[in-house]
Design a protein around this nucleic acid. Structure first.
Lengths: 334, 334
DNA sequence: TTGTACGCGTTATCAG
DNA sequence: CTGATAACGCGTACAA
C-alpha cells in the first residue's frame, strides 16, 4: 500500500495525496475529504524511509542512552519523552552498550536519520573528545559536565565538585575526621574525578589529610561492588568513622555488607551516598545523600537543545542545583 | 557523501562500491581494496533510509518498552540487546508511555520500518486484545502471560499463579494464618489477577479463608504506594502477622513504613515480595521473594521469536521457572 | 487547484 | 568481474 494506490483509489494524483497528508493548504476541501476517507479506510501511513530519504531534515531528536545501569536514566528518559511529545519533534531512543563509543554512534545516527538534535544520557565526552568535537549537530549531554572547545556540545549537570564538598563538609561538621572513600575509577569518567576533588578540597580546608592508599577503594557503580569495596576498606582502614560513597548504589551495598560484618550504620560507621535514587528514602537507615534534580536536568537540557536548534544559540554548560538529603545514615560524633 | 562520490573517487561504478560494501563475492581483490580504502578515508556509511526503502525487509527487531518504571525492564533490555547484536539483526528500542496502546504502536512501527519481529516488554495484551490480534508480524511478550487466539503473539513469563501459591504456602508453613495482601489493581493487568488467584488457592488448600474487604489493599507498583498501602492495611487488619506484597517495590515501601510505625520486620510482621529485583538482596532485612529469571526470560523470548521469524514456527507460550528466595523478612511463628 | 516528473541513495538485474 | 540503469515511496517544483 503506497501513496500511489491511494491516489488511484481516489482518482487523483499522488501529488495531491501527498499534499493532503502533509497538511498543505492548497487542496480543495472536497478532494481533501475524499483522500482522508480512503487513507483512513486502509489505515495508510506514509513510508518513513522514503520520507526521510527525501527530507534531509527529520525533525527527530535522538536520545542516546548509554548503559542501562544507572537508575537515574529511567526517570530522565521518561521526563524527556514527555517533554518532547507535545512539541513538533519526534523522539527516538537508542540504547548503547556500556562500552560503545557514543560519539561515533551519534555521528552515524545523525548521518542516517538526519536528526536535528541529540541528547546524551550517561555518556562521557571526556573519553571520546575527538569524536564529540566532530559532531555537526546540536547535542546536549545530560548529567555529565563537559565543555569541548569549538563543538556543538552543550551540557547540563549537577555541580559534582560543589556537591562533594558539601557532603564532606557535612561529615566533618558531624565530627568525622577518619573518612574512607568508595569511589569510581579515577581513570574513568570525569564525574568520579570531580567528586573526588570536591571531597579532597573540603578535607584540606578543614586541615585534614587524606591517605589515598589507605582510605580509597575503587568500585563499580553496583550494589555488589559497593559491598566488596566496603569490606576491603574496613580491612585497610579499620578505625574509620565515616564513608563517603560516590553513589547511592555503592552506599547501599556498603551498608548491607557492614551490617553483615557486624558494624551498625550509623551507630558504628556513618555513610553518605550520592545521586538521590528513590530507594534511598526507603532504605533502612534512610540514606544521607546528594539528590540530583532529575526533572530539572531533563527540562533544562531540552531547553538548551531547542534554543540551539531553533535559534541557533551557542552551546551552553549549565549546572542544576542539587538538594542535600540528611537521611539517617550519618551520626554526630561526640 | 554518497555512494556516488565514493565511486567517482575510486574511478569505478556505484554498483561496484555497493557490492564491496555488501560483501558480495564477485569483486576483484584489487578493486575491493581500493574501494575500502576510500570508504575508510571518508568514514563513509551507507544511508539506511535508502537501504530500507529498497529492501522492504529491514532485518530489524523492534523492542517496545512500555513504562520505564519496572526495574526488571532494564536488565531484560540489556540482555536482549546483547543477544541480538551478534545475530544478523538490528535491534531498535522504542519507549512508550505507561498509557499508550502498545499494539497500535507496534502496528505502525511494523508498517513503517518493515520490522521482522517485535518484542514487548511490560505490555499487557489483555487490555488491547483486538489490536494485538491484528498484528501481522511475529511478536513475543516477555514477562506477561498471554495467549491470544489466531494471533502471531508468543509469550514468555514466570508462572505467576504457581509462584504466588509457593509464596503463600511458605507463609502458611511458617505458621502464619492472618495474612494481608498489598496487590495491584485487579481490574488492571492479568498478572495481578493470577498472583491473587494463586495466593487464594493456597489459602483455600490450607483451610484458611480470606476477607478481601479487610485484608486486601490496592497499590501501584511503587515504593510510595507500597508504603501507603501498608499503613492502610494495618489500620484495617491490625492483628495480621504477615503480608503478601505483589512486588518487591511494594514490599520495600511497606517495610519502611511499618518500621516508621513501630513494627519490626520480621519480628512483628513478616513480609514477602515478588520479582527478585537486585535491591532485595541488599535491603535490611533481605527480602523474601520470588525471583524471576530475567536472563532466561530474555533468552527464551528471543529464541521463540527467531523460530517464529526464521522457521515460521507457530506462536508459543512458555513458562520460565522461578527461584524462591528465602531472605530474612519472614519469621517462623511459634 | 491539480497533475507530472524528477531526484533522494541504495540494491539488483542485466548486459558487456 | 564491472558498468549502466531501473526500481523503492515520497515531496515538490513546475506546468497545466
Amino acid at each position: 500500500m503506497t501513496i500511489k494506490d491511494i491516489a488511484r483509489e481516489c482518482g487523483c494524483a499522488i501529488g495531491t495525496v501527498s499534499r493532503v497528508l502533509n497538511n498543505h493548504p492548497d487542496v480543495s476541501e472536497k478532494t481533501r475529504e475524499k483522500v482522508l476517507a480512503v487513507v483512513k479506510k486502509h489505515n495508510f501511513i506514509l513510508n518513513t524511509n522514503a520520507k526521510l530519504l527525501k527530507a534531509q531534515d527529520s525533525k527527530t531528536i535522538e536520545v542516546l542512552v548509554k548503559g542501562t545501569s544507572s537508575i537515574l536514566l529511567n526517570s530522565l528518559l521518561e521526563r524527556i519523552q514527555k517533554r518532547i511529545e507535545p512539541l513538533s519533534y519526534n523522539a527516538s531512543v537508542v540504547v548503547l552498550d556500556e562500552y560503545d563509543n557514543e560519539a561515533k554512534a551519534a555521528n552515524r545516527i545523525y548521518y542516517e536519520k538526519k536528526t536535528v538534535g541529540i541528547i546524551f544520557l550517561g555518556g562521557s565526552p571526556e573519553l571520546f573528545k575527538e569524536d564529540f568535537a566532530r559532531l555537526l549537530v546540536p547535542c546536549v549531554v545530560i548529567s555529565n559536565e563537559s565543555q569541548i572547545e569549538d563543538s556543538h556540545l552543550s551540557s547540563v549537570s549537577t555541580d559534582n565538585f560543589t556537591a562533594a564538598c558539601h557532603s564532606a563538609d557535612y561529615l566533618i561538621q558531624m565530627g568525622h575526621k577518619k573518612i574512607g572513600v568508595i569511589g569510581g575509577d579515577l581513570c574513568g569518567s570525569g564525574i568520579t574525578q570531580r567528586r573526588y576533588d570536591g571531597f579532597l578540597a573540603s578535607l584540606a580546608k578543614a586541615g585534614l589529610n587524606f591517605d589515598y592508599e589507605k582510605a580509597y577503594v575503587t568500585s563499580k557503580y553496583s550494589f555488589e561492588d559497593g559491598a566488596k569495596a566496603a569490606q576491603m576498606l574496613m580491612k585497610k582502614y579499620p578505625d574509620l568513622t565515616a564513608i563517603f560513597a560516590m553513589s547511592d548504589v555503592m552506599a547501599i551495598g556498603a551498608i548491607r555488607k557492614l551490617d553483615d560484618l557486624g558494624y551498625k550504620v550509623p551507630e558504628d560507621i556513618s555513610i553518605i551516598g550520592f545521586d538521590g535514587i528513590p530507594i534511598g528514602e526507603y532504605y533502612r537507615p534512610r540514606l544521607a545523600t546528594i539528590k540530583q534534580q532529575v526533572d530539572l536536568l531533563a527540562d533544562e537540557g531540552l531547553n538548551i537543545l531547542l534554543d540551539n536548534i531553533e535559534r541557533n544559540a551557542p552551546p551552553k554548560n549549565k549546572f542544576i542545583p542539587f538538594e542535600f538529603i540528611k537521611g539517617e545514615s550519618v551520626r554526630q560524633l561526640v
